[in-house]
Design a binder for these strands. Structure first.
Lengths: 255, 255
DNA sequence: ACAAAAGTGTTCCCCTTACACCCATGT
DNA sequence: ACATGGGTGTAAGGGGAACACTTTTGT
């Protein structure tokens, strides 16, 4: 047992590190690692993110992403799922992916916190999401975030949300990710509305239909029809297929 | 001053945490944060990654990515640049971007290490890269990594390299990233060979030329011509332009 | 009957592709 | 002269955009 490069005692090799680019006598800095989740959903045609209001300093009264510290023997992905479950009650069957890591030294004014951000996509949840401490959590349309009547986000969470939204928007182009916003089975109109809400555009229904169906395995017909709400021909119902990529992609108008 | 959620004393609020999803009495686990860099370049038409041979346990004799621990007051990006400079002598003017964070609890057998991986792209370096400790560092063609006569990579570095290579390959499609592999000024053939090496395809020179030049700001002519090596008409020389994205993208053949 | 939404057909146009051909230089 | 690589021209085919039109439901 010895004290070496990792700054802790553990039962393996004791040679000085040759592969780590740190000064020989330097201690490994203490860093707290947290996970923050950008949870996006669609509510009445608007892309929304889940945030909860902070009751403590710093940033008391501001809104923050669900998140918390990674446990000792916990994988990062598992931690993200746990934070989501504890703070929203969602045992996610939806999409969850790592987004990016934020490690600016003073992003948390108290101590060094490196935060691994995740992106989660879910269909609209029927029940209002309540934090495990009963804290005030709510959905905010992402387009309201910069505006005057929108929420003030804590820490560097504005940047994290912006990165998450941009990732989601971009991935809609070349992955079947849009289905993560829909409850199965869904109609092609449901799927189209995901793109329209996320990109802020209007898509031509006939062309969208052909495009989606032309990619084998994007969606598969379930053999039933939806009950129309308020007139109109019933739509066929689909489930997400096994395709992992869209070829060719469904590109946004110029960027 | 008080002991609170971040596990350290600091001069701000003392209320119990309401926004962090950790058990009230739990200590913040000690985690070491490191940065590993996937440095890619092109050598004689092959995409290569820089690795250095470990001289200590664990994984003594295996090859590892350049990397090291993040310093106390150091930004993640700065840390990546520092590791690169210390281990390869490169003061990167090339491309550097965050790749992904790897935090599996036992990815390092000694202690918990969360590693933020970076992707760096550089033109072929004339001098052989030597580590700051004189350690054995060399380029390996990425296609040799899985093979029998290729190197054995330490830790989860095979996964990190694979992710980095895939990121680079994908980003060539819709960003001007290929120019990061070329020393300026470069010819369009140089640029084309980047795509051919990275994707393992053969591209039609006339069509490639039109495609590249049709995106305004991808490359700009410098008004000179290259001296041909071994016959052939001299090519026009270009520099990277100001465009940040390719519209429409230069797509790979089906995936 | 009318409105509304789903779905089909059709045309135009741009981009990609493939390949023939010309240009400029080294040997 | 010939090989080599840079660069231009051009015709065929695929996919996207736009929109007319048909189908099926609710009111």
């Amino acid at each position: 047992m010895a004290r070496h490069r990792c700054g802790q005692t553990c039962p393996v090799a004791t040679n000085p590190p040759s592969n780590a680019a740190i000064p020989a006598a330097a201690a490994i800095p203490a860093v707290a690692v947290s996970v923050d989740v950008v949870l996006l959903t669609l509510r009445s045609g608007r892309l929304c993110v889940l945030v909860s209001q902070r009751a403590t300093e710093p940033f008391c009264g501001s809104w923050a992403l669900p998140g918390g510290f990674v446990a000792a023997d916990e994988d990062l992905d598992s931690s993200a799922r746990r934070q989501l479950a504890e703070e929203t009650g969602v045992t996610t069957t939806g999409h969850l992916e790592q987004l990016r890591t934020y490690g600016c030294p003073h992003r948390d004014p108290r101590t060094r916190v490196v935060s691994v951000a995740y992106l989660a996509l879910l269909p609209n949840l029927p029940q209002p999401t309540t934090g495990r401490d009963g804290q005030h959590a709510r959905w905010w349309p992402v387009e309201d975030l910069g505006s005057a009547d929108g929420p003030t986000l804590a820490f560097d969470h504005p940047q994290i949300v912006a990165d998450g939204v941009e990732r989601a928007r971009g991935k809609l182009e070349y992955t079947p990710l849009a289905a993560a916003f829909c409850e199965e089975p869904f109609t092609l109109a449901d799927l189209r509305r995901v793109y329209e809400a996320a990109w802020g555009v209007v898509l031509d229904p006939p062309n969208f239909r052909r495009k989606v169906l032309s990619t084998p395995g994007f969606v598969v017909a379930v053999g039933q029809r939806s009950s129309p709400r308020g007139g109109g021909r019933p739509a066929e119902l689909y489930r997400l297929g096994s395709a992992t990529a869209l070829h060719p992609p469904l590109l946004r108008r110029s960027v």
